[in-house]
Simulated assay, not measured.
Amino acid sequence: MPICPKGHTSTAADYCDDCGAPIGGAAAPAATPVPEPAAPAGGGPQTCPQCGTARTGRFCEVDGYDFVAADLGGGPSTVDPADEATGTPGPDGPEPESAGPDPDDAGSDPDPGTGSDEAAATPAAGTGWQVAVTADHEYHKRVLSMGGPDADAMVFPQFFPERRFRLTGGQVLIGRHSRSRGIDPQIDLSGPPEDPGVSHSHALLVAGEDGWSVVDLDSANGTYLNDGADPIEANVPVPLHDGDRVHVGAWTTLTVAAS
């Protein structure tokens, strides 16, 4: 099987099923390894809480349980098998609110949250949060200016209907569906059109007492917040405020709003 620059075995030959890194192109910079959790008190190997299989990597080889996502808090999201075949988010995930763009919002640029003292206090997670997914031309231009190895292939889509999701549960996975890996994100960015820079398990939205945080899951291309020039640190929760923009991939922006 093909092996990506990060060392993951992949069934796909173009992009890695695990992290989304391109296969066969320029090698991605070495990523900070995800620390293994401490062994159980008895000294034995860590096992999958769903089937009892001993852990050999990030995902359980039997049922696809994500040990890393569970360690970040909130526990793994459960996907209804009936929903897996259609890609429809399960009952514990966000619910799409509209399939097309709002004409009144065309060309608008959401007010970026800064997290400064002037911003309103972060609403609690239970007060109702939404995420709007859009194709962001300004962010796309920033990605092209970085001059990555795949920049020429990252063409901005001519049509991308805005999608809205309501955040529920303890955590929400952002990424692209992979049947071979058993990855079924609640916010599935598989497209069409598909953003080639989004990893299958790219980032996680985690609920807390004071609101939601975003965690980059050591993705191939990183996760950016608002106008930040550098990606956020992998595997470290970053609190979100009303109006913050989370950038992933080549041109995808997720704008969070508390209601």
Rank of each mutant, 00 (worst) to 15 (best):
M146C: 07
G25H: 10
V62T: 14
C51A: 02
G43H: 09
C60W: 07
G169C: 06
P149W: 00
P37H: 04
F159Q: 14
P96L: 12
A69S: 11
C48I: 04
D18H: 10
T11W: 09
G113S: 03
S77V: 13
T114I: 01
G182T: 00
T56A: 11
D63M: 03
A41S: 10
A121E: 13
P161Y: 07
I174W: 00
L144N: 10
G126E: 15
L204Y: 00
L217W: 03
T223L: 04
R163D: 01
D188G: 08
E209T: 08
D227C: 02
D188S: 02
S190L: 08
V62R: 15
G147E: 03
R55F: 08
T255W: 07
P37L: 01
P192D: 12
H140A: 14
G52F: 01
V246G: 02
P231V: 06
D71T: 14
A121V: 07
L144K: 13
T78L: 15
A153G: 09
Q171M: 11
V68W: 08
P192V: 11
T56L: 14
T122G: 01
T78A: 15
A258E: 04
W251Q: 06
L225R: 09
R142T: 08
T56C: 02
G64L: 07
G42Y: 12
Y65N: 04
E36F: 05
N226G: 00
G87N: 03
V246C: 00
D66W: 12
V79Y: 04
A69F: 04
R58K: 10
A125H: 12
P40E: 06
S98F: 13
A207K: 06
P110S: 05
A124Y: 06
G75V: 07
A153E: 15
P185M: 05
G113R: 01
A121Q: 11
V62K: 15
W251C: 10
S10F: 06
E84L: 13
D18T: 12
E138M: 04
T9H: 14
N226E: 01
Y139W: 14
G191H: 11
A28N: 14
T11R: 13
A99E: 15
R176P: 04
D17T: 07
P40I: 04
